[in-house]
Design a protein around this nucleic acid. Structure first.
Length: 356
DNA sequence: CTGGGGAAGGGGCCC
DNA sequence: GGGGCCCCTTCCCCA
């Protein structure tokens, strides 16, 4: 029997055992959970991260968001301290222990160029459509011309998803500055693996004949047909979790899920445990203050890429989620939901996920 | 009350 | 098949 991590569920989480579980870290860290990794060693479990001294943590002082907003923006917040903390250096051979060097693609002032156009604000309620566009499956990007118009200048008529042709085009990265007239577009990033990115853009898709879902690789399609496609003829094995009621169609998915119970990746600083190494990486940033993702509009830095992405929405006049009744737009779906629940004058706000 | 940030989880994809 | 990365989503907290 596995030793479950000793965590205490916070209030009102019984309905959602896996989402955002604030836990109380006990003084005594329990026995290590089952190691599901096939790797020879999981560095999060070895204690090699344990030699963290306060001084090493201060090697990358937290970025003060307020300072970066209220005052003249710093030239460029370092995306990483030149010398990683000692405990990182000790584990330099491991991507788990210390994230791989962030390519200039994601470096401050440049990385967002590939992200901002993913949310053309005039496509309300077309979340999946955004996703397809982002994945390189869209018609020409709304920002595809080189006018460098800011997002709120773009007016792209909404086109039904089913009618939108599957044309694979590159995402033009030159038009994302809200003050484009004063910001020259950075040159293309040479570090992006062109063959891969081009492969994604041009998207030679492998389509499931049963359900029509397409995949970029044949193996992806094969996995889909074998395990996931309800209309397919693959074996319908099921793997159920012994800790909860969840059932998965593949062992890999189950193993991944079980990690959310066993939480094999522990933070050696505070003892909090995580299901995946990269979650631990993100958590460690909360200790180190490392914020490699910065907004080029206001220079505010973020530790999480997705949070920067959400933040970028705040710079857009027309945001991703809009109320179909009053046309008010919101940067987050949760805000739109609140707006609907609060009683939009027009009422009947539809949930974006239900509009497809 | 609203809007935004922080933190974390899950699925898809590629290597 | 597994690991890692990416993205989206969700939830909580706070100004």
């Amino acid at each position: 029997m596995l030793d479950m991590p000793v965590t205490i569920m916070a209030k009102n989480y019984s309905h959602c055992p896996l989402k955002k579980r604030p836990v109380q870290i006990l003084d005594e860290i329990p026995d290590e959970p089952e190691n599901l990794s096939t790797k020879p060693e999981d560095l999060s479990r070895t204690g090699r991260l344990a030699s963290v001294s306060p001084s090493s943590l201060s090697a990358t002082p937290p970025v003060s968001p307020s300072s970066s907003i209220k005052t003249t923006p710093p030239p460029s917040p370092p995306m990483r301290s030149p010398s990683p903390p000692a405990y990182y250096q000790k584990t330099a051979e491991s991507r788990l222990a210390y994230p791989a060097p962030i390519s200039p693609e994601y470096a401050p002032q440049t990385w967002h160029r590939s992200v901002a156009p993913l949310y053309p604000p005039t496509y309300p309620f077309m979340h999946y459509q955004y996703h397809h566009e982002y994945m390189g499956m869209s018609p020409a990007s709304p920002y595809s011309d080189s006018s460098l118009s800011p997002p709120h200048h773009i007016q792209q008529p909404l086109q039904p998803l089913a009618l939108r042709p599957t044309v694979y085009s590159s995402i033009d990265q030159s038009s994302l500055s809200p003050n484009s007239s004063t910001t020259s577009p950075p040159p293309p990033n040479p570090t992006i693996p062109e063959d891969l990115s081009e492969k994604r853009r041009q998207g030679v898709r492998h389509q499931c004949p049963a359900c029509g879902k397409s995949y970029s690789t044949f193996s992806g399609l094969s996995k889909h047909r074998q395990f996931h496609c309800a209309a397919g003829d693959g074996p319908k094995k099921s793997f159920s979790c012994k800790f909860c009621e969840k059932v998965y169609v593949s062992l890999g998915a189950l193993k991944m899920h079980i990690r959310t119970h066993t939480l094999p990746c522990k933070c050696t600083i505070c003892g909090k445990a995580f299901s995946r190494p990269w979650l631990l990486q993100g958590h460690i940033r909360t200790h180190t203050g490392e914020k490699p993702f910065s907004c080029t509009y206001c220079n505010r830095a973020f530790a999480d890429r997705s949070n920067l992405r959400a933040h970028l929405q705040t710079h857009s006049d027309v945001k991703k989620y809009s109320c179909p009744t009053c046309s008010k737009t919101f940067s987050r779906m949760s805000l739109l939901t609140k707006h609907a629940e609060g009683g939009c004058n027009g009422g009947n706000v539809m949930h974006p996920e239900k509009i497809y």
